[in-house]
């Protein structure tokens, strides 16, 4: 159950999974979740979502991330309709939203994301009955994707190259 009114608290509590402690979600991420996943009850995912990414990234330019709901049968009656990713400390909380159908056969996506710095990354899944699960993963990042760090000139060079390519 959701605790705290919109905007009134910096942290939102999501229904605790029996095996896990409560998940606290920062305001900015919670609003993004409501925006992309709808205004509904969010539950801590427990083992429903497998959210796989490295615990540490040398640079935040391209971090592999997999979101999966391994036990979903992906039938018409019971399937995952969407998978989502959010970040707490990137310039924007939105990362990606994936819309699935029973014809996917497997509720899993793998992609590469940018991370500006060490932070919690969040994953969400919506099931065909409307249930919404949320999980979080803390990742440390040496060099972010949005700032040049003089301590690691190689990576800073990569950022600069990318800046040039983009311009």
């Amino acid at each position: 159950m959701l605790a705290g009114g919109a905007g009134s608290l910096a942290l939102y509590t999501v229904t605790a999974h029996p095996a896990h402690a409560e998940l606290l979600i920062p305001d900015v991420v919670f609003k993004a979740m409501v925006d992309r996943m709808g205004d509904r009850t969010f539950s801590e995912s427990g083992d429903n979502i497998a959210f796989t990414l490295p615990t540490h990234a040398e640079t935040g330019l391209s971090v592999p991330a997999t979101v999966s709901v391994p036990n979903s049968p992906m039938t018409q009656a019971d399937h995952i309709t969407s998978l989502h990713m959010f970040t707490e400390l990137n310039p924007q909380p939105y990362v990606a939203d994936y819309y699935l159908t029973p014809r996917c056969g497997k509720a899993e996506i793998t992609t590469r994301i940018r991370l500006a710095r060490s932070q919690f990354v969040y994953a969400g899944a919506i099931r065909s009955d409307g249930t919404a699960w949320i999980t979080a993963f803390y990742i440390t990042v040496n060099l972010g994707a949005c700032a040049a760090d003089i301590f690691l000139p190689d990576a800073a060079e990569a950022v600069r190259r990318r800046q040039l390519e983009g311009g």
């Binding site: 924007q92 990606a96 939203d97 994936y98 699935l100 992609t111």
Partner: peptide
């Protein structure tokens, strides 16, 4: 349509 996605600025180059 079997699969689709919305991407935002945190998806890598």
């Amino acid at each position: 349509m079997v699969f689709s996605a919305d991407w935002h600025v945190s998806i890598s180059t």
